[in-house]
């Protein structure tokens, strides 16, 4: 059973992202939205941990939140809009929001 994990908190304020990466199954996906897109900031420790987690094809970020913070998705992350978010939630068996 695959799960889409959704994180919206900044990785610089708490441990949600590192906890999530520890629990992430091999079929699971990760969507960054809101301040969580700061994890993609070049040269940062959160980006290094994302890159070390073998997330090719299953790391996503909300395009609007990237644009609002002038952060680019980079090679490992796919930027999605809201219709893409809806479609993504249906590609996984469950959606788990890290509230």
């Amino acid at each position: 059973m695959s799960t889409l994990h959704v994180i919206s908190h900044s990785p610089f304020g708490d441990n949600r992202l590192s906890s999530c990466l520890r629990l992430l199954g091999s079929d699971d996906g990760l969507l960054l939205c809101g301040d969580a897109v700061y994890a993609l900031q070049p040269g940062s420790a959160p980006l290094a941990s994302l890159q070390a987690s073998n997330l090719q094809g299953r790391l996503f970020a909300l395009e609007e939140d990237l644009n609002a913070r002038a952060i680019s998705a980079g090679e490992t992350t796919r930027a999605i809009d809201y219709p893409g978010f809806v479609a993504l939630s249906l590609n996984y068996d469950k959606v788990n929001s890290w509230l």
């Binding site: 919206s8 959606v95 929001s97």
Partner: peptide, 10 residues
């Protein structure tokens, strides 16, 4: 529902 979507925090 087929999916429960939760939104919270910032």
């Amino acid at each position: 529902a087929d999916r429960l979507m939760c939104f919270g925090g910032d």
